[in-house]
Write a protein that binds this DNA or RNA. Sequence first.
RNA 1: GCGGGAGUAGCUCAUCCGGUAGAGCGACAGCCUUCCAAGCUGUAGGUGGCGGGUUCGAGUCCCGUUUCUCGCUCCA
Length: 503
Amino acid sequence: MKQEDFFKNLVAHCKEYGFIFPSSEIYDGLSAVYDYGQLGVELKNNIKQYWWKAMVQYNENIVGIDSAIFMHPTIWKASGHVDAFNDPLIDNKDSKKRYRADVLIEDYMAKIEEKIAKEVEKAKKRFGEAFDEAQFTSTNPRVLKYKEEFAEIDKRYVKALEDNNLADIKQIILDLGIVCPISGTRNWTDVRQFNLMFSTQMGSVNEDASTIYLRPETAQGIFVNFLNVQKTGRMKIPFGIAQIGKAFRNEIIARQFIFRMREFEQMEMQFFVRPGTELEWFKYWKEKRMQWHKALGLGEENYRFHDHEKLAHYANAATDIEFNFPFGFKEIEGIHSRTDFDLSAHQKYSGKKLQYFDYELNESYVPYVIETSIGLDRMFLSIISKAYKEEVLEDGSERVVMSIPAFLAPYKFAILPLTKKDGLPEKAREIMDKLKMQFMCQYDEKDAIGKRYRRQDAIGTPYCITIDYQTLEDNTVTIRERDSMSQKRINCNDIAAEANFAF
RNA sequence: GCGGGAGUAGCUCAUCCGGUAGAGCGACAGCCUUCCAAGCUGUAGGUGGCGGGUUCGAGUCCCGUUUCUCGCUCCA
């Protein structure tokens, strides 16, 4: 099957069986937003729990928090999100190419500077030893003209940026006669603003309301609580703070199902270390996180590292763990050495000291940070895309099976009375009532037994428990395993032990 | 944002040159059935994405709009 068809089938399957629905579907949908259905939410919760246990429960020096999505607006100034991600964009209608309007203007200004430099170069040759650059650039009429032009553009451009005057930015491009390098035309669209962050109002009275942002990453909620957690939890460096939560980004193009959504969920851990040791810890977490992924059993060949050449404004080392999605290897988790960028920035903007007193060194410092940040939705997608299989069985019949790792599966057991009479349903209910206190179970008595097995295969239930007439006599049931379809007879009381989920 | 494709039942899709919309699967109720789908009976479910135009008559032709999707641009 072609990858494209496979992916299409997977998406259709997710909708049909209640894993993922397009948002607001009865109103024609909402671009790049999805809802998790009754099965999706179970799988998602199980993934969260799996991660939380690996990070928080199994590491004595890591604790978790749940910070609010709303935060003080200055936080996003400090983090660099306000300034770094609001680019004015413009399209050339002929070449269909998109540019950053500010870059176009800055390139043009750079050209003027080049011209000045060339004049100086020429003059240098002409005057030789006697050349006085300062005098030349302040008197030569051609240079003066360039300088004047430069200053004029600069003044107007800076003002336009400050006022966020998109119309004037376009006008500058038109006035300067800037052409598209590809088409060579001046056929430009209006300048539009790209904003990474969603903004909203806080304050019920309009006039008093102030703009606040929906967080574009959960990390900042950890950083601003660094001291709270450190002091109240008596945490000693190195230690980590973990968090699972929603984040929001206004993607220019959001696509590929739940891979890139405008509203998504992150599982992040910020690990605070002594300055100078950050690259050791970076290496530690890089390996540790990769092991975690590989332990899931989706196939080790489906993971690889992708080290960053170009680093973000806050990092001094960064790598991605990439997963082999149906549309190729893409980032599923990022591990970043964020230096002391965030804590220092918050220290500066808040005026509060965000430092740690290290008794071993007998000194205070701003800790360095290693971040592990995994996309929960991407994790979800990686699991279902490897779990989804369309199989042809030996007898030529077909089945769709979701080989979700048993401990993550939405339902652990399906309870199936072989027929729905002669007391079998009653016995089945009895077993169901016991198991459901501990496991998510589904009861089904409709249709032939084979059909019910297939239904459970399609939603990834690892074990089917079938109650027959023998059950009434000796309290044994048939347990049927999803992937192998093998069956065996066991005592009712051994069901949980037999399934033996690798939690 | 630009360009291509598409929106008909819960799902997958038909409906030929314009004549009051159909199948398979699925769902539900019942029958039959002692362990791997497609046995029988019945039922529910559609203002054909939305708006307008042409026509005696539009799911079908035309225009607009919206949503999805693929490619390009962008991606901390």
